[in-house]
Design a protein around this nucleic acid. Structure first.
Lengths: 196, 196
DNA sequence: TACCAACCATACGGTGGCGTATGGTTGCAA
DNA sequence: TTGCAACCATACGCCACCGTATGGTTGGTA
């Protein structure tokens, strides 16, 4: 994995994204990252002018990942109800692993992060709103339900971290989507689509 | 405010809680706090053995505040439906100011914080569950709705921070409970109490 | 009023991270 | 095979913070 080859900008960004999992953007620190990559600051400061530039690049990369994947994986489904169901399935299935998502999306008050997160948030809520509109809800109701749905997702993301971290073993066996989580998602779907 | 008198342990804890608003537990740093209090480390290390002890004390204090107030302010209402309504009103009214709550409750992965937060979380969800049971929902449904309700609260807490921070003026005019927030809370109440 | 305990200031050494400077390597291209 | 550009290592100074050591103050009590 740590091949003795030379590094690219993207290698640093990838390492930065990994680091987020264990300490948020605060963990995007040059010297620890260099150590992890088996190199030194000398390399880093050739590719980047400073730490903030890496953080910016990392956020940009995350934004691409965050917007592209999920929505795409859903938009192929035709029926609106099935789309929403599918979305919840995907999103709540992933949630357990997505520590990175959690760290970025739950972390407030950081100017280097918030613009990106706010864009992603807006986009996701818009997408959800269109879903609810497709289900026949009026404009205002759809907007509110979308917001509730996304808030519930965020909260769920946070709540998952409680039980997860205690056992530091965490085998690669992604035991995602516990039956409890499934039940939660189904109930959420139920209440969110209850008649206006 | 910064009277030239001597300081107590509680003064440091109070300062620590304030500091959380502008940087989370990371902002509970001895020297900055000392400067803010108009004193020096000398004082601090007389009252506490080290930084972690202050953090622990601060979390303990927050736990008291977090559990006591809200639940008490609600339990005087008789009718279950009104209780829930009242709870949402209180909680969503406060939310905008409660940056501190947000920073503590949304921050994961910190061993010095998580045990406290997890206790508070469990307690609140239990309380919510009993509310839903009081509304006539069965055990399982009540538990799920409670979890959804709390997740929606957490997510809402996070979403509020987006719009809030941009304008750094933030006058003391607690413009809490925007009409948008009210509408959100009402819709949330509606979907959460929709028939099983 | 003299003293002791509570409380605080100052100075120090240590750590971890940032950014710069400067001098290697390495590999491809002429 | 030499040479230059890309890439990396090492060493340095700086800053913010932690914790210790040590020597003041201060205020109440004997």
């Amino acid at each position: 994995m740590t091949s003795a080859t030379r590094l690219s900008k993207d290698d640093w960004i990838a390492a930065a994204i990994d680091a987020i999992e264990h300490g948020g953007i605060a963990a995007i620190a040059v010297e620890p990252l260099a150590a992890g990559l088996g190199t030194t600051k000398g390399s880093f400061y050739w590719h980047f002018t400073n730490r903030d530039e890496l953080i910016a690049a990392t956020m940009q990369r995350w934004e691409e990942l965050a917007t592209g994947a999920v929505i795409a994986s859903v938009s192929e489904v035709a029926d609106p109800m099935d789309r929403l169901r599918q979305l919840l399935r995907v999103v709540f299935g992933h949630a357990r692993e997505d520590r990175i998502e959690a760290r970025i999306v739950l972390a407030p008050f950081d100017v280097r992060v918030s613009p990106t997160v706010e864009r992603v948030t807006a986009l996701r809520i818009e997408f959800l709103t269109s879903l609810f509109r497709g289900l026949g809800f009026g404009r205002a109701t759809a907007a509110k339900r979308a917001r509730i749905a996304y808030a519930a997702y965020l909260g769920h993301l946070r709540l998952l971290l409680d039980t997860t971290q205690t056992s530091a073993d965490a085998p690669t066996t992604t035991r995602t989507s516990t039956s409890a989580t499934r039940a939660y998602a189904e109930e959420l779907l139920r209440v969110l689509t209850s008649p206006a």
